[in-house]
Simulated assay, not measured.
Amino acid sequence: MTVPHYRRILVKLSGEALLGESDYGICPTTLTRIADELAEVNTLGVEVAVVIGGGNIFRGAGLAAAGMDRITADHMGMLATVMNALALQDALERRGVFSRVMSAIKINQVCEDYIRRRAVRHLEKGRVVIFAAGTGNPFFTTDSAASLRAVEIGAELLLKGTKVDGVYTSDPVNDPSARRYERLTYDDVLSQKLEVMDATAIVLCRDQGMRIMVFDMTRAGNVVQAAQGASVGTVVDPG
């Protein structure tokens, strides 16, 4: 039997991770693949938490830039993350994996309120916990929410899912000469303004020593390999 390397991890998924080949919403095939991977990690005995964004449905910052009140726009973005979280919960439970959606804003008819001790208890019972609605506050990204929740629940690794296999010197899609970093310190990320996570999230991880691995979420098997201790992307830690 494969022995997991980590006891508890938090996976950060952008809303765009659910798009697949679609332009909007949730691709059922992509949702199925992600749920399969999380279910496999769960069967290894790893406690799994997820923070999910809402950019496939609504981006608050974008509409705010077009003139909408930023706080209203951010609240709408939080609601989009709840929709994604419920979709992921359904996909997991259709695979026999018990899961809970915990929201940072009160929406009791569809999910639980976020309470740290209750979240930890769910994890200890082998349930996948999906954190929705970011931090519950405007002006904070779901990257910041992922860092905060990872620290609060005592995760040993924060897995940041992207569309590329790590952090590069520049955008590898537009720059063929871009080089991939194997390892970075938090201060490297901040000083070089690398687009790993927003600065608030990186500072929180740095101050609390939360290890980050930036990996390609589109490649099947990466989450499972990371949970087993493999390096599947760029590691950000104290160095």
Rank of each mutant, 00 (worst) to 15 (best):
M1R: 13
P4S: 00
H5L: 12
Y6Q: 01
R8D: 10
L10C: 01
E16A: 13
A17W: 02
L18A: 03
L19G: 07
G20A: 15
L31E: 09
V41K: 11
G45T: 00
V46A: 12
E47H: 05
V50H: 05
G54H: 11
G54Y: 02
N56Q: 02
A64S: 09
G67K: 11
G67C: 12
I71A: 11
A73R: 00
D74V: 05
H75W: 12
T81G: 02
L86D: 01
A87G: 05
Q89H: 11
R94W: 04
R95N: 03
V97K: 03
S99M: 01
S99R: 07
A104V: 07
V110I: 13
C111S: 01
C111V: 00
R118W: 00
R118V: 11
V128D: 02
F131E: 05
F131T: 01
G136F: 11
P138L: 03
F139T: 07
F140S: 08
F140Q: 05
S144W: 09
A145K: 01
S147R: 09
L148M: 14
I153K: 08
E156C: 14
L157M: 10
K160L: 01
K163R: 15
V167G: 03
S170K: 09
P172R: 02
P172Q: 12
R179G: 02
Y181K: 02
Y181R: 03
T185N: 14
S191Y: 12
K193D: 04
D198S: 10
D198E: 12
D198F: 04
R206F: 02
Q208C: 14
Q208K: 15
M210H: 12
M210P: 01
T218A: 12
R219Q: 00
A220E: 14
A220K: 14
G221E: 10
N222L: 13
S231F: 08
V232G: 07
G233S: 09
T234E: 06
P238A: 03
